[in-house]
Design a protein around this nucleic acid. Structure first.
Lengths: 143, 143
DNA sequence: CCTATTACTTGACTATGTCAACTATTGACA
DNA sequence: TGTCAATAGTTGACATAGTCAAGTAATAGG
């Protein structure tokens, strides 16, 4: 019972925190200059340099319709941050790769998120690690 | 340094978890029937029964433009879940109240979030409490 | 081969979100 | 008091995000 109440409250807080932090998202933050939307930033994070990502996988990670991914990637491709390539193994599949510009921008986003100005940096080291542990267990329990 | 890396990773995981869980959001979840969008659900949570909420406050909590709130509230009002009322103290202000239907729906959303099917319910009680503590400190440190 | 499934795209539609411009009210202050 | 700046909310124009249904191309399993 108290267990359920905590789960509920945790989720409420999580959502609240997420909405409240939109101004601190990579995009839109002070000194933005990227012009990327939050969703686009997230996609950029998910494509790791040197690890081509099938669009289908991206749709699953985002829990969204495939057609949504088409649009997201269209816009990132227009900005020259990402490339679609046909997969050699399966010609239905297209894999995503960061362009050099995409890698640079991704790096700067990661750097920005680690800045001491970021709210999460105000947690104690112990709490940061605890948070990482909790989130990791939540995420890979799901696949 | 490791401190910064943890903050960065925590934020990445948080965003990733948030996107991945969209199907478990109050809206859209299995057995939905509400027809509410995620943002609308969140607004419904933020309006506590018996605690009228000025629209301006809502905009600040959501970190978004006031005109966005106008639209959100319009749609909730169309569904008969929320009421706008002029504030007696300041006639520029409009406060939001849940209608009886709004209260009922809010209750059922909260109940759904506490269900054992929710991913957060799989955390240990200790972890749930730790997560709540961390999120609380993150949130009210900001105002 | 034939058929079902899968990966992606397209088009139509709604919701979310920003910005700039507007109205009405409030508050400060000469 | 009268004026002027700031505040709360709305409106309209616009871009993005997201869903669904339908379509194309390629794969996989009989």
């Amino acid at each position: 019972m108290s267990r359920d109440r905590d789960a509920c409250r945790a989720w409420q807080l999580l959502v609240k925190f997420f909405f409240a932090q939109r101004e601190h998202l990579p995009a839109g933050g002070p000194g933005d200059a990227t012009g990327l939307s939050p969703a686009q930033c997230h996609v950029l994070h998910l494509i790791e340099p040197g690890r081509p990502l099938p669009m289908r996988t991206l749709a699953e990670t985002l829990s969204c319709d495939a057609s949504n991914v088409t649009g997201l990637v269209d816009r990132l491709e227009d900005r020259g941050l990402v490339e679609r390539r046909p997969s050699p193994e399966d010609r239905r599949v297209k894999v995503l790769r960061l362009t050099p510009a995409g890698e640079r921008l991704r790096g700067s986003l990661l750097r920005r998120m680690a800045s001491p100005a970021h709210p999460l940096s105000r947690l104690s080291m112990r709490q940061q690690r605890e948070l990482v542990t909790i989130l990791e267990s939540l995420i890979d329990e799901r696949r």
